[in-house]
Amino acid sequence: MIRSTHLPLLITLATFIVAYALCASAYPAMLSFRVVANLLTDNAFLGIAAVGMTFVILSGGIDLSIGSVIAFTGVFLAVILRDTSLHPLVAFALVLALTTGFGAAMGATIHYLEMPPFIVTLAGMFLARGAAYVLSTESVPITHEFYDMLQGLYWKIDGARFRLIGGLMVLTFLVGIITAHRTRFGQNVYALGGGEQAARLMGVPMASTTIGIYAVSGGLAGLSGIVFSLYTSAGYSLATVGVELDAIAAVVIGGTLLTGGYGFVAGTFFGILIMGLIQTYIVFDGTLSSWWTKIVIGGLLFAFILLQKGLTWAAEKRATRARQRTATGSAALS
């Protein structure tokens, strides 16, 4: 049975299938495994960050800091690997602890100081970007044999290379889906997004949930930064400007309500793929400028906002009907 809450997810899925069919009819080569593999590889860092963003938006918040945190992570790793003899795995652990703690600190500020997430994470955005500049204003190349090894890992089908980072993104999504629907933390995230006052009265632990949400977002932005450094083999403090907005776009195109409470992590996955698909199409076409990507994404976002409004409206209609139904039902009883 299709529930109305699943409808946006199904529409996202349908959009993806239709878009892919259109692309494939224009360029049959887009059906190849190679395109799919590149889609996963090229969007890995954005996808991982968007999982964190999905949790934040589901809870009714926003995290503007993730683009800066990704850049900071890249620069941090590059500088550590250049200047010290630490193993990359140790550096990974360090930077993940740092970004998770950074997210948790923002979450604590939001909860205890009762500040809007927009402002707190805006401050976080400037802080993280600034910290990246402090480490280095130049692009720092990463050369380490462990990096070469990781970058060389792939799973080959039909000449297409499914690389480690694409797999990492898929894994992140799977863990995200299970967390959202099968854990108490996930349920609390939805509860927060559904109504703060009600959630509090129902005994949801507000502090730990809010802090947890932003810690997850920060941690996943760190992971995204690691993936980005593997993707580009460098750390650059000017990189990934505005990635938080791409992530928000992917979440909304994925069918999650920007006001919180409704949506699915799986939807974000297809949101990412739709955005990646548009880019791939423009590459295949060759004559279109890359700004067409922005225009199409803008149009899609607008369409999804209208769709969400329409669904909300339909749900209200349905609630009114349900009310009338029970009223006549109990009247018949008495």
Partner: peptide
């Protein structure tokens, strides 16, 4: 004071969901 975005069962059991192996037994 319930949550409109959750199902009836989720509302009823929020915070004390039956668990199996660390996950909510839906």
């Amino acid at each position: 004071n319930l949550l409109p975005n959750l199902t009836v069962a989720e509302n009823l059991f929020l915070g004390r969901q039956p668990m199996r192996g660390g996950f909510i037994a839906r």
